[in-house]
Design a protein around this nucleic acid. Sequence first.
RNA 1: GGAGAGCUGGCCGAGUGGUCGAAGGCACUUCCCUGCUAAGGAAGCAUACGGGCUUAAAUCUGUAUCGAGGGUUCGAAUCCCUCGCUCUCCGCCA
Length: 424
Amino acid sequence: MLDIQALRNDLDSVVAQLHKRGFAFDAAKFTALEQERKTVQTRTQDLQAKRNNTSKQIGMAKAKGEDISAIMAEVAGLGDQLKADEARLTELQKELQDMLLNVPNLPHESVPQGKSEEDNVEVRRIGTPRVFDFEIKDHADVGAPLGLDFDTGAKLSGARFTLMRGHIAKLHRALAQFMLDTQTEKHGYTECYTPYMVNAESLIGTGQLPKFEEDLFSLNHNDSKLYLIPTSEVTLTNTVRDEIVPLEALPIKLTAHTPCFRSEAGSYGRDTKGMIRQHQFDKVEMVQIVHPEKSYEALEQMVGHAENILQALELPYRVVSLCTGDMGFGATKTYDLEVWLPAQNTYREISSVSNCEAFQARRLQARFRNENGKPELVHTLNGSGLAVGRTLVAVLENYQQADGSVKVPQVLSAYMNNLEYIKA
RNA sequence: GGAGAGCUGGCCGAGUGGUCGAAGGCACUUCCCUGCUAAGGAAGCAUACGGGCUUAAAUCUGUAUCGAGGGUUCGAAUCCCUCGCUCUCCGCCA
């Protein structure tokens, strides 16, 4: 959520910045709402002040045993007017709030301008794609004989669900373990186990609601509604919701390995083969809660934390700075890590690291006590370190052998009982 | 699932219709005193939003907030209703 003060004081500039990312802000509507809000709020508060004053007088007069009928008469008509004003004020504030909740974050000045992913800017490219001396297969064809079973996944649950067996399942687990161990032991994140179902408040806090409800899976239980997490960014970031943490506690660095559930509404027909795009996938997530002055430093570090995984797995990748038109709702700046997929002959997103500055913190009321002892909004960052399913895809494709087997990446051998090759 | 208890400021905890944003204590900040650590004294110490002043801050002022929402009342932390959460006992259960 944007700071409403910024909109009040500097509306034109905010509108211009939002326009850069393709968002049309209804400034006229906002101005009209604000104007009425101001009038109604001032009037309401004046009436409330009058009522409080009079009531106080009644109390004092009664204590002294004086006659109160004169004062009572004075306050008689106040109630109805006040009630009407209060109701209207609530309505206006809700409208303004709803409006703000649907406005995306402002891009950082360093973000390249553009409309779509074609305008993203490559920052660096690491590793050299392997040259194959045989006809390569995509991950689905490589994995099928080794235990990657899309048909059974579809039977159990439908499209975009996959069953893994045997060494493929174990490789998948090894990847997650390796990532989690790296983030905790080498990069200083605290390992968390979090709920997979959350309430609406949590999703409003991180920005998935109210705007993107259709992307989520939800469950009705008795009278309550819970949502399956689309990423553990939601649970990890919400740990500081409604909290004021001491200055010394920052930065807070959290990580978790969880499944992620996404309805993938609007991506029908995209990536239908294989496990690039699933309704359920595992991810090791990194979240940092930091001092506002440190958030861009933290962003670069977190990209490095994700890159280290790819480097350890010896997977070629590139780092891309997302353009204004391709960034997510809550981000001021985002780097994507794209891993090389030889069968697609291209780089595909495997991690996304974003700084949200105070956008989520304002929704979450997540604050710290600053140097002067005053509460101030924190900055929040999140990033995948990494998406486990897509990493499995990358390993299958990049480590495939002519005989149909898959070589186990060296760093994983300890997690795989020293297995060297996965064979049918 | 059954029965009961509770939810007040950073923490503990008083407060059952009126001058309560809320006693008292702890913690914290500043100052005083005391020749060390300790002890004693004074003051300060919630958040959000609106308005005035201001380049801005400080400050002043108003409103709201005692789990949440609604109601009764001139007036609600206090009374009524609904919901949420926590805890205890019983049952069930990985």
